[in-house]
Computed example of a mutant assay.
Amino acid sequence: MKLIYVIVRNVDSSRVMEGLNKQGFYVTKLASTGGFLREGNTTLMIGTEEEKVEEVISVVKKECGPRQQIISNPVGPAEYTSMQVLVNVGGATIFVMDVDRFEKI
Rank of each mutant, 00 (worst) to 15 (best):
residue 12 D to Q: 09
residue 36 F to D: 01
residue 21 N to G: 11
residue 6 V to T: 10
residue 56 V to H: 00
residue 76 G to T: 11
residue 84 Q to C: 03
residue 56 V to Y: 02
residue 55 E to T: 07
residue 3 L to R: 08
residue 59 V to W: 00
residue 1 M to C: 08
residue 8 V to L: 04
residue 95 F to H: 06
residue 87 V to F: 04
residue 50 E to C: 07
residue 4 I to H: 02
residue 80 Y to S: 07
residue 96 V to C: 07
residue 63 E to F: 05
residue 73 N to W: 15
residue 37 L to A: 05
residue 84 Q to D: 13
residue 97 M to A: 11
residue 89 V to T: 13
residue 39 E to I: 05
residue 11 V to K: 13
residue 104 K to V: 08
residue 43 T to Y: 04
residue 79 E to H: 14
residue 34 G to M: 07
residue 25 F to V: 02
residue 93 T to D: 08
residue 45 M to F: 12
residue 9 R to D: 12
residue 35 G to W: 01
residue 78 A to L: 12
residue 28 T to Y: 08
residue 102 F to Q: 03
residue 56 V to Q: 02
residue 61 K to D: 15
residue 59 V to L: 04
residue 48 T to W: 02
residue 32 S to V: 13
residue 34 G to Y: 09
residue 19 G to M: 04
residue 2 K to I: 01
residue 48 T to K: 06
residue 22 K to E: 12
residue 46 I to H: 00
residue 28 T to P: 04
residue 4 I to S: 04
residue 68 Q to P: 00
residue 7 I to W: 00
residue 90 G to D: 10
residue 39 E to Y: 00
residue 65 G to Y: 04
residue 9 R to A: 14
residue 48 T to L: 05
residue 2 K to A: 06
residue 85 V to F: 06
residue 85 V to R: 11
residue 14 S to P: 00
residue 29 K to G: 08
residue 63 E to Y: 03
residue 2 K to P: 00
residue 51 E to N: 11
residue 19 G to L: 08
residue 70 I to W: 10
residue 36 F to T: 03
residue 94 I to Q: 02
residue 27 V to N: 01
residue 9 R to E: 15
residue 95 F to T: 05
residue 83 M to G: 02
residue 41 N to L: 10
residue 55 E to Q: 09
residue 18 E to G: 08
residue 78 A to E: 11
residue 4 I to D: 00
residue 59 V to C: 03
residue 89 V to Q: 06
residue 79 E to S: 14
residue 12 D to H: 03
residue 73 N to V: 14
residue 13 S to K: 07
residue 6 V to Y: 00
residue 59 V to E: 01
residue 93 T to R: 06
residue 26 Y to M: 10
residue 7 I to L: 10
residue 62 K to Y: 09
residue 6 V to A: 10
residue 45 M to A: 13
residue 63 E to M: 12
residue 91 G to K: 06
residue 88 N to R: 12
residue 21 N to S: 15
residue 64 C to P: 04
residue 53 V to A: 14
residue 20 L to R: 01
residue 43 T to M: 13
residue 47 G to W: 04
residue 78 A to R: 08
residue 89 V to K: 05
residue 79 E to A: 15
residue 42 T to P: 02
residue 8 V to W: 02
residue 77 P to K: 15
residue 64 C to S: 15
residue 14 S to Q: 14
residue 12 D to Y: 01
residue 31 A to N: 15
residue 7 I to P: 00
residue 34 G to Q: 09
residue 41 N to H: 01
residue 103 E to D: 11
residue 67 R to A: 09
residue 101 R to D: 13
residue 66 P to F: 08
residue 36 F to S: 08
residue 43 T to A: 11
residue 77 P to L: 14
residue 73 N to S: 14
residue 103 E to I: 15
residue 42 T to Y: 02
residue 99 V to D: 10
residue 5 Y to S: 12
residue 37 L to G: 06
residue 59 V to M: 03
residue 72 S to M: 05
residue 25 F to K: 00
residue 42 T to H: 03
residue 39 E to P: 01
residue 68 Q to R: 10
